[in-house]
Simulated assay, not measured.
Amino acid sequence: MTTAAIDASRHITESQCPQPEKTGWIDRHFQLQAKGTHIRQEVMAGITTFLTMAYIIFVNPQILSAAGMDAQAVFVTTCLIAAIGSIAMGLFANLPIAMAPAMGLNSYFAFVLVGGMGLAWQTGMAVIFWGSLLFAAVAVFRTYIITSIPLSLRIGIATGCGLMIALVGLHNAGIIVATPSTMVTIGDVRSIPFVLGCASFLLMMVLVQRGFKAAVLISIVAITFVGWLLGDVEYQGIASLPPSIAPVFGQLDLMGALDISLIGVIISVMLVSLFESAGTFVAVTDKAGLADETGNYPNATKSLFVDSLSSAAGAFMGTSSVCPYVESATGVVEGGRTGLMAVVVGLLFLLAIFFSPLAGMIP
């Protein structure tokens, strides 16, 4: 066979053989092909997840302001720590799980530690800080802990936090008020906050039942607009440069929180954070097909370290404990399978920092 014939044969053979597809850094780091997904799918899943959990950037400042914290500063720190936690979860644990300040623990901080026990908010934040570091210390036992939490206990903790949040919401809207005879009673049904609160809840429920992924966010925006029309909301603008976080950043009373009487409270914060996080991690990774029948999932130890250290960083910055959000399951339903989805959520939280005037208008 001539040299020309050999070269022609080699050319035909190479053209017929499938060539390995070139992959970029994003594909290699997040293992997109291996997990049957692609960049566009992960981006859409991240946007969907952000829309379902964006309410936290409005709600968290209102709750923590009840403890005497600056609401505008907390708005910025809420966005910052949600961005840091979500991006870290995506980059280091490669899980489709977004992070943000926990609903439940923020109410516990504002209405129990500060409102009930009379702690200064600086001391209460330090309690969250030490509890988060304790959480990080026990994260090395993650396999035993996650598989040992009974399902009934996971459900009970989540239900208890939900009932507490509901009580706080009804009180803030004026739907229920305190009374000496029965502890709680119905509020003034003719007041604008009462009407707006009921309308917001009903609208939210209708949207949820109809499958709107941003039901909570749509309800907040719609009722804020109605409140503005009724004169209950003052227009403050839509976007601006971020407010200063100096009023809350690094203001912890670390030594004051180490008082012997608060040791049990620190342990309680650690346990609630651990149980809530473990349950959410297992639920979302199971939805994504990443967890086995015993609840083990990839990079579990890394995920708990990211969670606990993000909580400690959040407390130092001036916001309550950070946790994985079960709303991440909406992104999983949209096809999210990797940490790229969480990174997209984090980037969107960074953009949200510039919308603090809008947050200040929420009734």
Rank of each mutant, 00 (worst) to 15 (best):
T2M: 07
T2C: 11
E14P: 05
Q19G: 00
E21K: 12
T23R: 14
I26R: 00
A34E: 15
T37H: 12
T37M: 05
H38L: 01
M44R: 11
F50N: 10
F50V: 07
M53I: 12
F58Y: 06
A66M: 13
A66Y: 07
V74K: 04
V76T: 07
A82H: 01
N106M: 08
A110E: 09
F111I: 02
M117G: 00
L133K: 02
R142Y: 15
I146F: 06
P150I: 01
S152K: 00
S152F: 11
L153V: 15
I157T: 00
G162R: 03
V168R: 04
N172H: 12
A178Q: 12
I186N: 14
R190V: 14
S191L: 11
F201Q: 02
M204Q: 09
S219N: 06
A222S: 13
A222E: 04
I223H: 04
G227N: 12
W228T: 14
L229C: 14
L241S: 14
A246S: 09
L252I: 06
D253G: 00
L254I: 06
L254E: 01
I267F: 14
S268E: 09
F281N: 01
V282L: 03
D292R: 02
V306H: 09
G314L: 07
Y325V: 00
T330Y: 06
E334Q: 14
T338H: 04
G339T: 07
A342Q: 03
L350K: 08
F355Q: 05
